[in-house]
Design a binder for these strands. Structure first.
Lengths: 210, 210
DNA sequence: TTCGGAACGGACCGGATCAGTCCGGTCCAC
DNA sequence: GTGGACCGGACTGATCCGGTCCGTTCCGAA
């Protein structure tokens, strides 16, 4: 009778519902305060700490889950942009907005706070590769300056998304304001050489290895 | 015999030297880790905690001092740019680099961690006014897009300067890379409307009031 | 209706961290 | 030589947080 996917009821259903609540709450809480305590997650989810720890036996486990889900969301945005065969710049722009809204900034700031595990590293690599593919496509269509790497983009988006000033909605507004600014500088028409070597994949992925 | 500026000797001289060391160390340490413990500052300064606390009776006092000095440095950069009557854009660009190197990012991230005091608020206001003056001058010379406020600049610089990835020198390199990118988007030639209302003085200065 | 037990919530525990204190030692001035 | 200012860093008391434990609640079967 276990794992059959049959209708759940009673406590079973509540458990399932709590599970989703917890992950959502964790994403929101850690996005606002990367070093938030577990009790904050529990409170936000409207759940006791006991229930929280029954599902995720350790804080690392929960952070791991949140990061992995975030990366999958970003990958989905990238794949969607790659599948889109309209204007390459517009696809790219949409991707960047999606990237920003996925709370990408969170993950990079979370990266140091727990021990990553190999699957997270793999996910980070794949995410990076997808973004680089998208960049190459857009650049070779002549719509994106060609001295920018996927790592550059990740850092820029992470920094912009990390801005925390006021209420969340106002912050989101500012994030998009500054993303729009950066996007203008990413067009090739504005190109003038940038100082220093670009960020590399290794510089970022090192954060996802113990 | 006190305060005459006469040559100091012995322990007196050591005390004076330690005083400078401590402030420098504090700036560096808090720049790297805004929530660093006092012991880290003492260690970096090569000084015992006792000496540290004899000079600054509380952590807040030290943070206060660091922030105030940082603001004065930024004000000096702004005044220098305003006094410079060469190419307005080049003055502006130099100012932005100086702003970034002053560890401007630090202060905003430090802003929440202690109780500010009225003189810091005054310094923040003056800093903001100076930057706005510089912006107005550059924009009315037609060299800067006119939908950007001083608060926008402060946030952008703070975010860029807040990037912490690798060794300090490499980080500085990346900071300047991304500042260069943003500077391109700030030129009026690249202007396309930005979404959302700009950041306001109040949004930033609220951080400097209890 | 009753009963067994699964899931719940939150009080609680042990360890770590850190701001701030205290004291024994050091080095200078006289 | 000696008094005392200044030094460093061990120490303290409070706070915070990850993780555990247990009394309570509610479901479903008999």
């Amino acid at each position: 009778m276990e794992g059959t996917g049959a209708a759940l009821s009673g406590r079973r259903r509540e458990a399932r519902r709590n599970d989703a609540l917890v992950v959502d709450a964790a994403r929101e809480v850690f996005a606002a305060h990367p070093d938030a305590p577990m009790s904050a997650v529990a409170e936000r989810a409207g759940v006791g700490q006991g229930s929280l720890y029954r599902r995720y036996r350790t804080k690392d486990e929960l952070l791991h889950r949140v990061c992995l889900e975030g990366m999958h969301a970003i990958q989905a945005h990238a794949r969607q942009a790659l599948a889109d065969d309209g204007d390459p710049w517009e696809s790219f722009e949409r991707f960047m907005r999606g990237y920003l809204d996925s709370g990408a900034g969170v993950q990079l700031s979370l990266a140091g706070t727990f021990t990553p595990g190999p699957d997270l590293f793999a996910a980070a690599s794949e995410t990076h590769a997808l973004i680089q593919t998208l960049i190459d496509r857009t650049a070779s269509a002549g719509r994106l300056r060609d001295d920018i790497t996927a790592a550059d983009l990740s850092l820029l988006v992470a920094q912009i998304g990390g801005l925390r000033l006021n209420a969340p909605e106002r912050d989101r507004e500012l994030h998009h304001r500054y993303l729009a600014l950066v996007l203008q500088a990413l067009r090739p028409s504005a190109a003038a050489p940038l100082p220093g070597p670009p960020a590399t994949a290794a510089e970022i992925e090192d954060r996802w290895t113990p």
